[in-house]
Design a protein around this nucleic acid. Sequence first.
DNA 1: TATGAATGAGAGTTCATTCAT
DNA 2: TATGAATGAACTCTCATTCAT
Lengths: 195, 195, 195, 195
Amino acid sequence: MPDEIQPLHPRKLEIVEAAVICFLDKGYHQTGVRDIVGQAGISLGNLYNHFKGKEAILVFIAEIEGQELSDFIDGLSSTDDPTATLEWFIQEYAVYVSLPENALLGVEILTEALRNPIIADVFGRNRDRLIAALTDCLIQGVKSGVFGSRMDPRVVACLILDALEGQGLRSLSLPSGDKLARDTIGSFLLNGLRP
Amino acid sequence: MPDEIQPLHPRKLEIVEAAVICFLDKGYHQTGVRDIVGQAGISLGNLYNHFKGKEAILVFIAEIEGQELSDFIDGLSSTDDPTATLEWFIQEYAVYVSLPENALLGVEILTEALRNPIIADVFGRNRDRLIAALTDCLIQGVKSGVFGSRMDPRVVACLILDALEGQGLRSLSLPSGDKLARDTIGSFLLNGLRP
Amino acid sequence: MPDEIQPLHPRKLEIVEAAVICFLDKGYHQTGVRDIVGQAGISLGNLYNHFKGKEAILVFIAEIEGQELSDFIDGLSSTDDPTATLEWFIQEYAVYVSLPENALLGVEILTEALRNPIIADVFGRNRDRLIAALTDCLIQGVKSGVFGSRMDPRVVACLILDALEGQGLRSLSLPSGDKLARDTIGSFLLNGLRP
Amino acid sequence: MPDEIQPLHPRKLEIVEAAVICFLDKGYHQTGVRDIVGQAGISLGNLYNHFKGKEAILVFIAEIEGQELSDFIDGLSSTDDPTATLEWFIQEYAVYVSLPENALLGVEILTEALRNPIIADVFGRNRDRLIAALTDCLIQGVKSGVFGSRMDPRVVACLILDALEGQGLRSLSLPSGDKLARDTIGSFLLNGLRP
DNA sequence: TATGAATGAGAGTTCATTCAT
DNA sequence: TATGAATGAACTCTCATTCAT
């Protein structure tokens, strides 16, 4: 994302933070631009000095979410020990997607991406990178014999993400992050990968 | 759902079908009542003779979706052979959630349920029934020794649903239903359940 | 205009009348839809039950203006006596375009037609019919020898309209309709047509 | 215009030129100050260092247009030979008002003058000077017997301007300037002035 | 049951202008 | 002089819903 190195007015971040709060609270379509500027404490017109429109804010958020995935992608790329790497990923990603703002925003962006090509583009690019990194890790494991070779690694990668994200979403309505469930899922996934 | 045994005006179904088409096409919040009555070929006011409002239509749809789950719940309850039952369920439910109208409507209802208590109520009740049935099946398998006992069966049940539904959603953008991926997921899930 | 035989809700005419008042008072672009509905005494949303939008109202007005020209076009077509016909036209059209609502609305529609293709279409069609009828009348006069044949009759027709309409616009700022000026223009035009 | 002898920052002219381009393209009211500064390549706030506001730019343009009329006024004042002078004026003014920027800006200023007293003031002053000069020329012709004396010379002067300007506006949509039509109008006007 | 006119709050966006830097 | 962030009223239009017919 070399085009994001531009100065970046602090107000722009304030707007994004306000928008995130609103989107989490009411959902993207239920949130009005007036909600956002009210939350941000700025005037209505000023929002349009920083963003082309409401949709541009969601795109920006999706891009930020994508950048946050880079840590996971980087971690998955150190594939000396696929098993350890995968255990680390499952553990950390499960925690990441259990944070309400990640879980809810993820759903918001995903559902918007279903029908909005612009969002689909940003979201899809980020997701593809994550899937590719996870798939590579699985392939490494298959090559080194620690994972079974029966299954298409890309499909398994998607399944892993689905399982972790589904659990993240489910834990929204729970008091704590439900560590037990996360561990169960982790061991199930690893168990299923046995050769 | 004993309260649905009432006569049920055929026009009501026409409206629901029109609404489903619209919701699939544009999403629940992006769909206006004018879109629905236009699709249904009736007048604006007449919609309110059959439904209290737009939300009531979504509740109705969620209830129908819930009824469609009954077949799966019934199937899961014949637990003489947990492995065979689970194989059947994974196979059939994967197909079911691959149908675009089920996949998309499911997401629509789920996201709405995140913030709308009325929808959450209907959706949650149906989902709980399915999870309970699937959990029971898993428990049977654990008891009879065909499934491993390490993991909380309810969490595994949720994971199975997440994996299948995630794949259903993903297959939306694919030409065919992607039978291969479904099989991969099925074998992964069953593999992970080994004792 | 056979497509205008449809029932035509009386409220639609009320809106048009209100819009005309506003357009005369403030101009088309300076008039807001809220001005129109305020003048019409209806609610904001109801305007959109009768017109697709603000522009559609102007189109409607332009169409009505076009229909009002039909009397002149009909009169010009009875060309037994081109001189008498032309005298009648100059006299009557001068009065017509001296009425403030015709003069001002004409300018409003003309200027909008300069850049708005939809308005240009409606306006151009009506104007072309009038020019054609006037040109025909002039041609008749040339054929029968009462008008000079040196000049392109179509250009002269346009000149006649320009002169009359220019005077109509100028008389806006005058207390009375300025009958003297109209007569002067009439005699000038007829004088210029001498063979 | 003795108040325009002030230094006149070159940036001011750049802004005016940009504004003219915008006004021709979109019309005065449809043009935003952001359009103008974008076209001029300056910042939004800087415009207000040179003009009090958007309206002041139009006033400035109207004043420039008025100055451009001075050549015509001067030419009309050399009334040794009213016929030759009038022929020259008709010829040259027809060309002048056929230039798109003159034709369109003229309409823009005229229509704004209909409702904006400030513009009406500037525009009216300039126009009155031109009408007066042309009227004087006609009076000279009447006195020397080359023009007929039946008609109010001021009304005829207005008619001449209307005819030429109307043709100028009409030639906007034509490929060339339509010299033939201009000649026709010129000969018609001169013909109508015969004693 | 069926119609569509009526409502007015609310949608996202643009506006001309001001002002601290 | 020059910048562009800040303002908030105004813009056109859509919304779900009501109601008289």
